[in-house]
Amino acid sequence: MEAALTILLDGLQFSSYLFIVSAGLTIIFGVMKILNVAHGSFYAWGAYTAAFFIGKFSDMGLPDALGFLIIVAAAIVVGVILGFIIEQGILKHMYERDEVLIVLATFGLFLVLEDIILIAFGTDPYFAYQPMALLDSVELGGITRDVYGMTLIGVAAVVAVGCWWLLNKTKWGTLLKAVIFDREMGISMGINVPLVYTLTFIGGAILGGLGGAYIAPTISVAPGLGTEVIVLSFAVVVVGGMGSIAGAAIGSLIIGILRAIAVHELPQVELFVVFAVMAIVLVFRPEGLFAPAKPRKI
């Protein structure tokens, strides 16, 4: 019983983390048809920016509770600045080109952004443990858990509900869905598609940054942390179905919980299980569990 509760909580926590990062990836893909490899860099930049300022503010003697504000601010700043520069500076000029070429451009960007992190922040890891220390820990299921880690589940829920609300309950969502379904039709209906693209990209980037910023207090923020994340979130969106928020949620849950079970019961297969799920889904339902309908191109 205790073990089951622990596995469930571990799984949910990991799923939540996966979801926040992958939601941004899948939104950008759904609207713009761009598989953004540089998404891993948004994550890394979010983590670095948050860790840097949490440390700085703490050194200045400001209250540690500000850390939560910094996390949100870091995500927004990173998302807006990087997202805007990349979309306007590079991707905008590529929309007429092959989709796959755009993926490759984001791969080039990923390489560049990784090293700019090194130049900007140096090689030394950053620690931003203050927000985690502030929330303390609780006894749950016979073991100690840090409350901060569990708030991650709440953040993921907020992101999920927010996305759902935005897509289904607002005018904006309707416009987005129109563009997702048919870009040309959207343009002819008078939708400002370039603006929709820019905002979508920035929104996705903010989510990527948020994933990094929120996880920053629990890890040592060190170079190279974007490389792993992009692969994991990639597995999530493939399992769930590219471009679907619900898919990203389901994909995160499946992968997160299976991984938790593996770590507890059969640690040797922990990494393998993630990709095995991906392989099985690919073989039996290659378009993913929740893929949006794709009009056939003629």
Binding site: I90, G108, V112, D115
Partner: peptide, 14 residues
């Protein structure tokens, strides 16, 4: 910064 050089070359080519 070798990744940066490779990435920038890549973007330039594209």
């Amino acid at each position: 910064a070798w990744q940066l050089i490779m990435g920038a070359t890549f973007l330039t080519i594209i």
